[in-house]
């Protein structure tokens, strides 16, 4: 202890020196713009370096949770991929089927197919309309059928040069001839203006054999749609008001709230058939 004290006393000028230099340095940094700028900048650089180092360490310890998170993400992504693959397969199969049916229909009945996009769509009215971006210029005329990959949408009501107005199933004026797939009776499909998910087969004959869950498709009698375009699934069966027919509620395949691309189908023989029918009527 004594030696240390002696040492400190003997070298007291060192402390004075350090104190004076400290004061000078403070003055330099405090009152000289250039020096203070340099000093504080380099200090900041040092601080930045330290923080960088610390955050590196921090990151290292965070790796575990990061890994877990990535693993979870991977699992969910794998699930999504599987689901999408299944969907793709499904869609491919459906498309192949449709292509086949289109070809068949084309050959057998002279139906013309076209594609279009929905540009406007209403759901909330009793008489809803859909606007699509194909018109007379694209060979679209009124009384053509409109459907998408899921099923029937409606009938073209009016066609301008580049746009067409579609009378969808969700319109009280819509009236499409349908039948139960595999069954023998047919009926017209009408909407009651209430729920956009359901429409009604209003006059199914009593001799028709069907049950809940049967698929409803176009009958082809109206000559607007080819035979067998899906419409919906029978959801509820009841008697019509006069008791002469069945009244079946049909759950529609098409989701009218999310329409995008649609197919248009026209019949070459439509006019001829109409003329013939009108001749019979006239008689």
């Amino acid at each position: 202890m004594q030696t240390i004290l002696n040492f400190l006393v003997r070298h007291n000028h060192w402390f004075l020196f350090i104190i004076l230099e400290g004061i000078s340095f403070m003055l330099i940094v405090r009152f000289n713009n250039y020096q203070s700028a340099t000093f504080f900048t380099s200090t900041n650089g040092m601080a930045g370096g330290v923080y960088n180092f610390l955050s590196d360490i921090d990151n290292y310890f965070g790796l575990r949770s990061e890994n877990e998170q990535l693993l979870e993400q991977n699992v969910s992504l794998i699930g999504e991929v599987t689901e999408l693959k299944a969907q793709l397969k499904d869609l491919q199969a459906r498309e192949a089927m449709m292509r086949d049916s289109v070809v068949c229909a084309n050959i057998s009945t002279g139906f013309i197919f076209n594609t279009a996009s929905v540009v406007n769509n209403s759901l909330n009215a009793v008489n809803n309309f859909i606007v699509i971006d194909k018109g007379v210029a694209d060979g679209v005329t009124s009384e053509m059928g409109v459907f998408d990959s899921k099923g029937v949408i409606g009938i073209i009501y009016l066609a301008s040069n580049n746009y067409s107005l579609v009378l969808p199933l969700l319109n009280s004026k819509s009236n499409i001839s349908c039948r139960v797939r595999g069954g023998n009776g047919f009926s017209s499909l009408q909407w009651d203006g209430a729920d956009v998910r359901y429409s009604y087969l209003v006059d199914l004959p009593r001799h028709t054999v069907f049950e809940r869950g049967d698929t409803v498709e176009t009958s082809g009698f109206s000559s607007i749609f080819p035979k067998g375009v899906p419409v919906g699934r029978i959801d509820k069966i009841e008697d019509s008001v006069d008791g002469m027919f069945y009244r079946a509620r049909v759950e529609l395949f098409v989701d009218f709230a999310s329409l995008n691309s649609v197919f248009i189908v026209g019949n070459d023989g439509h006019k001829e058939q109409n003329e013939l029918e009108s001749k019979i009527d006239g008689k």
Partner: peptide, 26 residues
């Protein structure tokens, strides 16, 4: 040390360079 510091500080005060001469003279 004290003479040096004070002398440097005086020169600094006139030369508008607070601390530099003081530090060097110390």
């Amino acid at each position: 040390l004290i003479w040096g510091f004070l002398l440097g500080l005086t020169v600094d005060m006139f030369g508008n360079t607070p601390g530099i001469n003081a530090a060097a003279a110390t």
